[in-house]
């Protein structure tokens, strides 16, 4: 690797102070699984200094707060997989985390790093979008909070300023226990990026699709929602045909590309199938009293 300096932050405020100190020459280091792999082969000059946030205590931990289920940006994929809290309140998050890379990568890689790297095939994005997650960012101008969708700008581009860090992701209280599921299709079952991934969530009071959410990965410049498919489902009785039709509609909303992993047509077909499966998976999590549980 090319030479760079290293400083460690003890907490998020310290990290922001260090970023302010070193300016554009600084780069945040979380688990390092994306950043170090990039730095090893990048033709660009290295950062002056990496600001290691992996020791920042306030960026860690999974907890229930007044706002909802809070995941610190430094929560690793393995922690999500093994969290009893997540298994209880938002199991689809664990479904998405367990298919990221391999055990070793999941032990290092963080949810914050996954979102900020912002590749369209990220596996954390779809489920969080389908659960209307919100994120909090800290910078020299203080905190700001926004829907996750506003973080994503383009491939490898977020709305984060160079001197800001992501500090937490919150699944709002009203969406805890919302039936949701995640689906991924890669060229192998493990250690493979998604050709397409998808997540879906909905409530089903009286067997009717309510507040459906469909999110797709790897088929557009960022992870996206499929609003037409959602509109189609809203108010419709839950049925397999409706799920399949929503999948077909979502496929028309996807804007996949052809690359060395798969063709655009193949990806479009995958969208239809994975959306249907995600909806079916979510339906499997519907319990009669779910609406009450959440309120």
């Amino acid at each position: 690797m090319k030479p760079f300096g290293y400083v460690a932050a003890i907490d998020s405020e310290h990290a922001v102070a260090l970023l302010a100190e070193y300016g554009k020459g600084a780069k945040v280091l979380a688990g390092g699984t994306d950043l170090l792999a990039d730095l090893k082969f990048s033709p660009h000059p290295p950062p002056d200094v990496v600001v290691d946030i992996s020791r920042a205590a306030d960026l860690k931990g999974i907890a229930l707060t007044d706002a909802g289920l809070r995941l610190g940006a430094m929560v690793t994929h393995s922690e999500i997989v093994h969290s009893p809290l997540i298994a209880e309140a938002a199991p689809a998050l664990a479904e998405a985390a367990v298919v990221i890379g391999a055990v070793q990568t999941r032990n290092l890689g963080t949810i914050g790093g996954n979102l900020i790297t912002c590749v369209p095939s990220m596996d954390s994005g779809p489920t969080l979008l389908a659960l209307d997650a919100r994120v909090t960012v800290l910078g020299p101008r203080g905190r700001r909070e926004m829907p996750l969708s506003e973080l994503f700008v383009g491939p490898r581009r977020t709305s984060l300023a160079f001197d800001e860090i992501l500090i937490e992701i919150v699944v709002p209280t009203q969406n805890l226990h919302k039936p949701a599921a995640f689906q991924k299709f890669g060229l192998r079952k493990g250690q493979a990026l998604a050709l397409v991934n998808a997540a879906a969530s909905f409530w089903a009071p009286d067997g009717v699709f309510t507040e459906p959410r469909i999110a797709l990965g790897a088929v557009a410049p960022t992870v996206i929602r499929a609003p037409k498919a959602e509109a189609y489902l809203t108010g419709r009785p839950v049925s397999e045909e409706a799920m399949a039709e929503a999948g077909r509609i979502a496929a028309t909303e996807a804007k996949p590309i052809t690359d060395f992993r798969a063709s655009a047509e193949y990806r479009r077909d995958l969208v239809a199938v994975l959306v249907k499966r995600a909806l079916a998976g979510a339906f499997g999590r519907v319990t009669p009293n779910q609406k009450d549980l959440a309120s």
């Binding site: 400083v7 932050a9 310290h14 102070a17 302010a20 100190e21």
Partner: peptide, 14 residues
């Protein structure tokens, strides 16, 4: 604030 934090001297280099 930044200076204050820097004075906590948690910079691993130092």
């Amino acid at each position: 604030m930044a200076q204050d934090l820097m004075d906590r001297e948690l910079d691993v280099l130092d």
